[in-house]
Design a protein around this nucleic acid. Sequence first.
DNA 1: CACGCTCAGTTTTTT
DNA 2: ACTGAGCGTG
Length: 774
Amino acid sequence: MEPSEKNTLTKLLAQLNAAQRDAVEFCDGPSLVIAGAGSGKTRVLTYKIAYLLEQGLPPYYILALTFTNKAAKEMKSRVSDLVGEKKARQVWMGTFHSIFSRILRNEAESIGFDSNFTIFDASDSHNLVRLIIKDMKLDDKVYRPGSVHHCISMAKNSLITPAMYEQNAEIREYDRKIKQPLIFEIYRRYQERLRAANSMDFDDLLMFTNILFRDHPDILENYRNRFQYILVDEYQDTNFAQHLIVKQLAEVHHRVFVVGDDAQSIYSFRGANIDNILKFKSSYPEAQVFKLEQNYRSTQNIVNAANSLIKKNVGQISKNVFSKQEEGEKIEVISAFSDFEEGVIIANKIARMRVEDHVSYGNFAILYRTNAQSRIFEESLRKKNIPYRIYGGLSFYQRKEIKDIIGYFRLIINPQDEEAFRRIINYPARGIGDVTVNKISDAAQIHNTGMWEVLSDPLRYDLNVNSGTLKKLSDFRALIRHFIDQNEKLNAFELAQEVIKKTGIAGETYQDMTPEGMSRAENIQELLNAMNIFVAQRQEEGNDDIRLSDFLQEVSLLTDQDTDGNSDLERVTLMTVHSAKGLEFDHVFVAGLEEDLFPVAMAKNEMRGLEEERRLFYVAITRAKKTCTLTYAKSRFRNGRLSSTQKSRFLSDIDHTFLSSESDAIFVAHAEREDGFWGSLRRKREEDTVNRSQTPLYNFQNEKLSPVTQTSSGSLSKEADELCKGDIIEHERFGRGVVSEIESAGSDKRAFVDFDSVGRKQLLLKFAKFKIVK
DNA sequence: CACGCTCAGTTTTTT
DNA sequence: ACTGAGCGTG
């Protein structure tokens, strides 16, 4: 080993504690790291990758899997800091779903898919299930689409195909017991329809990866050889399908490094199997186990309180999480009269701490069990002019107007996509109603083909519609065909503009002067912006030909959780406890600690469910670094009704020595309540002002599409902002050029630059990597 | 076929 | 409270 390399290795290891170092240094076989909350889990993962790279393992031999894009992004940037961006970029780092969708697109033919397959999101899946239930003339009160889809999802996560499902006596017996004996049939049809639509749902991405590996040993062999080192974050959240993928890929080199905390397993509803981590040793008998027990995040009081809570669970890996930080303040429990008052109390407390303790807004988080609770905090914070940011809830890409446009995109890329077809065939209204759509659907099913095929050749499939309708259909077909042609020539952004214009969406939306209409128009504009930036950014990276399909692939696996949170130093964070996993804040409020809310009503009948809720509460408390405040309300609006509540049993699970004596809220806020007409009118107006102001509190921006947005707003853009016409610049990729024009559209300034080598290019100043020469 | 009205449900959490 | 599905009318 070269001396310099050795030096870097030593330096890397010197920044770790003994337990972390042991874990990083052990590279000869499978290893499991049990990482207590706040014990430096991400640190170990990133240093491990750096360590491997420094030892000379080529980056493209390393596979690092996470659950969220956010975690992947975080890891990427931290590895970048350690070993440089160039190497870090080559590591296969991403979520299970994104990595394996990439692999599936490469290998699509082997499993009978086209590589441009669509990825169905949860609501697409839900719709399809509902459609099938209707087709089968089943009662959707008995066969609730949501629960049926859940069953299907669980089956897929356990790698049970429709055929296996049908033959599995135990499952069938269970279905009979819950009076839904035909789920197997729905599952079968669902899977057929997905395939006919050249589409996969989220679960398919994992199931078909397994099918691919099962049926094509040569392909498996290829990836097995490539991935010499596999790292998995949040291993306690893996399901069987994920576990098996990892196991198979690790078969040759036997070098898996999984990190997790059984006490933070909170995704069983999604098929996560806590046994994967509890029984890691039986899957990999020669595995080494490392425990990280020192918590660097929180005060002793917080750690101890959390420990006392989690002790009430049975069946966990024993560990002794401890903190060497100061003892800190006790956890405060506050009761409020109502959910409304709970909001006011928290808002007041934040405002007070900001002034008295000089805490900036970004160091506060309000965590809750359900998204529905966010509304009340929005109100109370807004009233006190406290800036906040909500994560989760309806994501940008789930908004109707956005999904409609995405529907066009999907159909252009994959005309087999039935869900998209149905969504847009009559949007904007073009006189093709349900009757016609059903006829097309029936014809497609009879002839065992897709709806697009029927549309393409209505006569051949005996489509029984009148000539007027026929004309409308052929117009629609021509429209989509036109876009498909354009897709050959235009980039994603240009094509999107074309779609919005030619379909009449632009005309329709921009004319609508109602507040809702204007907000829709803004959202569409936002989408276009995002796409423009997406294209510009890729061009910066050296890809000139950015097609719609590239954008679509990115977007379908993106979620709200992926927005860049930590950049917002001046906003209070509002999110569900689930979303907060992996994050930390100085001051945390956990709200709604009431029976049937936290723990949620559904969970309390079963031991398993209750323990998961308790782990969830554990996750919530351990997000806090300095203070943690628990609140509950004695009454709460639920489903439009005011109901009285009981305080959560979890509060008494915490050892009282770590709690400050419970305080009833002193009278705070009854008078402030704005009920009735005037109240709601005023609220409405406030909303409007907020939405229209220059700095909206709730702002999607384009961050969700741009992994490097934040970094580029540093020193570069300050110079770039001052760029003028006539300046000469040196661009990282295009070389020398003269600025011929500056154009600013809102916050996005762009420059037209004539480059010596490549001619005129458009640069988005936000992203462009260049120096001003003169 | 589109639009507007009424009525019912609402299983948390998310890739 | 709110949304979305279903139904009747123009």
